[in-house]
Design a protein around this nucleic acid. Structure first.
Lengths: 134, 134
DNA sequence: ATAAAATACGATAACAATAGTCGGATTTAT
DNA sequence: ATAAATCCGACTATTGTTATCGTATTTTAT
């Protein structure tokens, strides 16, 4: 599977929604209703975005969330990093594998690294600002 | 997760190995030993590659496998198509979804399609021939 | 003070996809 | 006939995702 997780999908939609709020605070409930997704699941998603420093939260009765920085400074890579245990297209690129059983004969590491770089680049250069205008 | 499945990884390695055999037939056992992967699992992988027309098999005592076409005509996309239930980065791009609950407000379809196209292109232009030289 | 409205967060269940195994059937050269 | 190989469906195990639940904490209005 080569699919973004629901968390990433919801994260992007939420960030986009916040980007269109002109800096106003917005509640998880409002986002969850607008996007028609589970409030609890969304909340966890938003909390992960906080940890990554992409959004800020205000607790209490008039609390909620807002972007922590300009939308053009938030890349898809940031969102993915916040919300997925993102691994590389093949394990050996990122994880320190003592022995994949093929070390002596593995010949795809270089081309796979090149592919990985291209994919990373796609998500690096795409920002929330770009999709907020839609 | 944005990871190629083991089947695709093994498929690519197997195809690369076959590409370096100068058209000679090679057995699943030999590949599985060379790559140090389960014979049974590899066999299923190879059978899927046959179905997709990427390799040919010869049954019987001196049987085995070989490429069905030149290595530069076999793309990573071909391999992925043969070995994974490949879906798009977000469901709504490929599957006919009557109601994702966000149709009326979804605004990421266009940018997601563009990203999908770029990713597809990466795998479309990478061939077994390119990695066989390594 | 107290209640209400909001976020924070760990535990866990449900589900889906991948990864791997098993057993038996078929094909073919010798 | 036998051995060496592919073929293939059924099954199990593992892993990752998706979702829910319960409870705690923070802040504001009254």
């Amino acid at each position: 599977m080569f699919k973004l997780s629901k968390k990433v999908e919801y994260g992007i939609l939420s960030l986009q929604y916040m980007a269109n709020q002109n800096g106003n605070i917005i509640t998880a409930k409002e986002i969850s209703e607008h996007l028609n997704i589970s409030f609890e699941f969304l909340s966890k998603t938003l909390q992960s975005l906080i940890k990554q420093g992409l959004i800020e939260s205000i607790q209490g009765v008039h609390g909620g969330y807002k972007l922590a920085k300009p939308a053009d400074k938030i890349t898809f890579s940031d969102v993915i990093r916040a919300l997925e245990n993102r691994s590389s297209i093949v394990e050996c690129l990122t994880e320190d594998i003592e022995n994949c059983g093929r070390i002596s004969c593995c010949t795809i590491k270089t081309p796979m690294t090149q592919i990985q770089d291209k994919i990373n680049n796609i998500f690096d250069i795409t920002t929330i600002a770009e999709i907020a205008i839609y």
